[in-house]
Design a protein around this nucleic acid. Sequence first.
DNA 1: TCAGCAATTATGCAAGTGTATAATTTGGCG
DNA 2: CGCCAAATTATACACTTGCATAATTGCTGA
Lengths: 222, 222
Amino acid sequence: MEPRKKFQRQGEEARREQLIQAALEAIAEGGFPQATVREIALRAGVTQGLIRHYFASKEELTREAYRSFMTEMIAKGLGAIPAELTDPAARLACFIAATLRPPVMTHRQVTLWTAFIHRTRSHPDLAEIHNETYVAYRSTIQALLERMPGTETRSGARALAIALNGLIDGLWLEGATEENKFDPEEIVDIALMAAGRIVEVDLLSHKPAPADASRHDRKGPP
Amino acid sequence: MEPRKKFQRQGEEARREQLIQAALEAIAEGGFPQATVREIALRAGVTQGLIRHYFASKEELTREAYRSFMTEMIAKGLGAIPAELTDPAARLACFIAATLRPPVMTHRQVTLWTAFIHRTRSHPDLAEIHNETYVAYRSTIQALLERMPGTETRSGARALAIALNGLIDGLWLEGATEENKFDPEEIVDIALMAAGRIVEVDLLSHKPAPADASRHDRKGPP
DNA sequence: TCAGCAATTATGCAAGTGTATAATTTGGCG
DNA sequence: CGCCAAATTATACACTTGCATAATTGCTGA
């Protein structure tokens, strides 16, 4: 008879986070149907009973994973705007570029998004999370627009924010779909060109330089 | 003992179409997980064995449903452009407006799209269908652009087509998500404004009148 | 050190899934 | 009419799923 599996105890917080990450990994790699309780447990290196111990149901784990995913993604986009940058156009350009580059525009991210967005349609609790994060996202854009020329009226700002939001979302979706192999920076250039024309301000001249990929895996100088 | 169910024979073509429509209905209403073989059969008014008789597997039914759905949706958008319309700007405006109005921009359509797009990530055969239809869609836009000013160079036309495609897709997705209750025509106006600025041509003046809803359910005059 | 409790594993179960196969009915054709 | 292939129904099966519950183990505090 095989011996019982050895294990280490972990704090509640760490385990929950670990299970959430394992769930996201499973969904990203195999799609939602493959992300069974057993598969998630396997990836987390635990047995399936533990999931039930920390989450009342698989639905609850799904909810938390969705919230974690969306929150983190928005933070990544906003975090790319340097605090010391004051020019509204430059800030907007920064946000757009960050949204259309890794780690936000990624095959994995889009896959996860598509997985959740469908569930959103039949699960009101997921729809609520979608709403919260979506509103936060669009008001972010609107805030970036507010100090720019041509946005004197509220209705004007609203329309521009909706248009920009659509453009960015659409390009994000398009750009991370594996088959349309775009040059990494092409989507950013197109987005800045188009967004600039929509708000009638030159954004391309404020394009931030892409992160240097050669330094990506390094923590310090060689 | 209950008597065996009575049935009528139908031609192969009719049955296949019927099953495909039932599958789409099931997916649209209950999401992909609810669209089981039994559920689809129930909606089609047949027993589950029949599905297997016409489709080698559920996967095959899914494929055909996806293809049918996408083909029909593209046709709806293109079909809205009157043949006698020659002005390129007017034709583009027509296409955009049709894409952002019913029956293309609809909660049901977006729900179906989200259902399939996720499956696309793990099923190469579905990804292939996605690609086919997607390429057709974007080259449609590019064709509409080709005779417009500012698209002299190929690269210019390509960039504009990508931008426009992103804008339209993003607004389509946004506009049919139930929570953001937009005024029906608001999205169209915003799209024409933004697209017009991107291609630097006035599109709003070419906006086609919305279909008269009051005549919708009528076949003829009262 | 050791008892006790929470964390974790192990096992089982009922429901639902896609699919295979056998049994019937239908409609057309001689 | 009567027959036969094809269409359709009915039944069964093996498998997976989420969840519940019992059995163990690791850790901590006295």
